[in-house]
Design a protein around this nucleic acid. Structure first.
Lengths: 94, 94
DNA sequence: TTTTTATTTCTATAATTATCGAACTAAAAG
DNA sequence: CTTTTAGTTCGATAATTATAGAAATAAAAA
């Protein structure tokens, strides 16, 4: 990939990670080691559902998470590939 | 360090990295493998001196760089320790 | 001392961001 | 069909951000 584009992509990923709530969400997902729903995460971190939805979307948009829809629920899990590519060793450093 | 504080610190570092110009500065420093001045970096990346100064300050503030003042010039270099602690493997992935 | 060089600070501006409650959508349960 | 449950979108707000030019600072050079 061209450097200019790589930097743009990297900057987007870092921007997504530059929010304490999103980092908490990531740590929560990493610690649970399974898929989690918006509701579960929101309850655990005491954040309003609209805000959690906003963050879920941001994480998904840059490929840091995978999503799976089932009935009314949406399940999020970490996308290890993206972390490995752009932030090798980061998840383990959490 | 307490998790809450660690997340805040991490978020700050990521925020600092979430700008394409700052990533370019970091790559430039990494590639040159030596100290560089505001002027050198600005010239190489075609950014105004006040903007470069602003970014230099931001990088220094979160400990991503070291600075050395000599005469009117200020030299920046990467702070490997911070990168190793918060972003192991990142510099090599650039 | 005057001028040049390097960087910083100030000012203003335009753009982006995170947040929550309210309204909305869609599916499950009753 | 109605109600509940889960999540999304909208609207408003408050805060932060990157940017460049102009003015200020400080040291070197002439």
């Amino acid at each position: 990939m061209e450097i200019e584009l790589e930097d743009q992509k990297r900057a987007e990923i870092f921007k997504t990670l530059s929010d304490a709530n999103r980092l908490k969400i990531i740590r929560t997902l990493q610690a649970s080691n399974r898929e989690m729903t918006c509701g579960e995460v929101g309850a655990q971190l005491s954040i309003s559902k609209s805000t959690v939805s906003y963050h879920f979307k941001a994480l998904r948009a840059v490929g840091l998470t995978n999503t799976r829809k089932e009935a009314q629920s949406k399940y999020l899990s970490l996308n290890q590939e993206t972390f490995n590519k752009y932030l090798p060793g980061f998840l383990d450093s959490l």
